[in-house]
């Protein structure tokens, strides 16, 4: 997994609450057996006029010009600014895969759905939770200023606005460590395999029917 330390990037606003994973990546694209290639179908139903299929040539599909990610000013955005309960609904990891494949490394919102939040970390996306009032302020900034960029510094746990103002954010120590070092969860867990085996032996004594 790629390391994330510090980045400065254009911000795109997704100004609606409860954006669900069916909206982030519609079901017809879940039929792929790969982890990549979902970017062109991110927010497919909001982004295109027609109904996309896995074999569609996306470069020739009619775009909904008013949709935020189709507007020229947000091209190249790597930070998505969102509203409450972003990523609710299904557990599909295709949602963070699609966001990452499109180019987003950071999603900022007042709250996230639990499973989506977890899935982001496994794919090198930083889901950052900020107070609703701060998120409101960022939305105003983004709408007001074309080319609005933020710097996200994971090392110091701060978001830096163009005027130099710093916004601190919380992140679990373990998750921060994994993102900073691009660590693979499975490798880390297998380093504790003696603990797992010891637990398993005890569990087998206590609940033998689970090992029948």
């Amino acid at each position: 997994m790629d390391k994330i330390v510090k980045m400065t990037a254009l911000v795109a606003p997704m100004d609606r609450a409860n954006v669900d994973t069916d909206a982030i990546i519609p079901k017809q694209f879940l039929k792929s057996i790969k982890r990549t290639g979902f970017g062109p179908n991110l927010f497919d139903e909001w982004r295109y006029e027609d109904v996309g299929q896995p074999d569609s040539d996306n470069s020739h599909r009619p775009l909904r010009k008013e949709f935020v990610l189709n507007q020229p000013r947000y091209q190249g955005a790597k930070i998505l600014l969102a509203r409450e309960n972003f990523g609710c609904g299904s557990s599909r990891e295709h949602a963070p895969w699609a966001l990452k494949d499109y180019g987003f490394d950071v999603v900022i919102a007042p709250s996230f759905a639990d499973i989506f939040f977890n899935n982001c970390f496994k794919n090198g996306i930083m889901p950052l939770v900020l107070d609703e009032s701060i998120v409101d302020g960022l939305f105003q900034d983004v709408f007001a200023q074309v080319g609005y960029e933020l710097t996200v510094d994971l090392e110091s746990q701060k978001i830096i606005k163009p005027n130099g103002e710093k916004i601190p954010f919380e992140i679990d120590a373990f998750r921060r460590h994994c993102l900073l070092n691009g660590l693979d969860d499975i490798g880390l867990t297998l380093a504790h395999q003696d603990d797992i085996k010891a637990y398993e032996a005890k569990h087998k004594q206590e609940a033998p029917w689970l090992f029948a």
Partner: peptide
Amino acid sequence: HGIGTSEVEHVLATQCLIQKKM
């Protein structure tokens, strides 16, 4: 728990899930 695909792989490989208590 409902989990993502990376976690499916993690459970297959380690029989464990990384979690914080809710």
